[in-house]
């Protein structure tokens, strides 16, 4: 018997409808997805197509109006706020477009924050963050505060924070939107490296066509529904 593979995250006919000025806005309409551990998925689509909403559904940050979401096989729809928070803490890493870091903390403190919330001892936290900082090229910047870091460096700290706890999946919502193209490329490179070397599952939302090229799996979203879902040839190495 082979061990049954469980998707890192799975949705079944998930819907999210917002009530907006008395109008129902269907942000996500009947999305069914399986994302396996170790995948590197790019979620593409124009602004307003429902990328952010779908990511929030995948990460248990928003409750679906209808349908189901499972992380590691666990049903999110039946969980309390507290249970969802615990699940996010232990199984999900988030990288947002902006306001990712707490301004009063240093780069290292920001990166180790989820480990701190989990009650991991300081030595261990520091060791794991420094190891990661070496991989993403942030060594030497540990004690800087966010205001003293470039946009690309800030996002790398956010990626480090999302990855450091070895989550089932990392969700990044347009993490390169505020970066120039060189910094965007570098950040994407960092995530691709982590995906390859550590097997971290990434789901990455963007409307930047250049970045879509680097996806192993590209899901196109239009008006809240999946238009296409292509697994592409490995880009090698």
């Amino acid at each position: 018997m082979t061990k049954q593979r469980m998707p890192a995250v799975k949705t079944a006919d998930v819907w999210k409808v917002f009530e907006h000025d008395g109008l129902a806005v269907e942000a996500v309409r009947g999305v069914s997805l399986d994302i396996e551990p170790g995948e590197f998925v790019v979620l593409a689509g124009p602004s307003g197509s429902g990328k952010t909403t779908l990511l929030n559904l995948l990460g248990g940050l928003t409750r679906p109006t209808r349908g189901g979401v499972w992380i590691d096989g666990r049903d999110l729809t039946s969980m309390s706020e507290r249970e969802l928070a615990k699940l996010r803490l232990e199984r999900v890493g988030f990288v947002f477009q902006a306001y990712n870091l707490l301004p009063v903390l240093t780069a290292l403190e920001n990166a180790e924050f989820s480990l701190l919330l989990r009650g991991i001892p300081p030595d261990e936290r520091r060791r794991r963050v420094e190891e990661l900082f070496a991989v993403i090229g942030m060594t030497g910047l540990e004690d800087r505060r966010p205001a003293k870091l470039s946009g690309g460096e800030q996002q790398r700290v956010a990626v480090a924070r999302a990855v450091v706890g070895k989550p089932a999946l990392v969700l990044a919502d347009e993490p390169t939107a505020n970066l120039d193209s060189a910094a965007s490329d570098a950040l994407l490179g960092v995530m691709a490296d982590l995906n390859r070397e550590r097997g971290t599952t990434f789901v990455f939302a963007t409307h930047d066509t250049r970045l879509m090229e680097r996806a192993k799996r590209l899901i196109r979203l239009v008006d809240g529904a999946i238009e296409s879902d292509d697994v592409r040839q490995d880009m090698g190495g």
């Binding site: 928070a85 699940l87 306001y99 707490l102 924050f113």
Partner: peptide
């Protein structure tokens, strides 16, 4: 509010 929202998103429970 951004700070609290971020903490909640990162998995801090409401109790925390």
């Amino acid at each position: 509010r951004y700070e609290f929202a971020l903490l909640l998103a990162l998995g801090a429970t409401p109790g925390v």
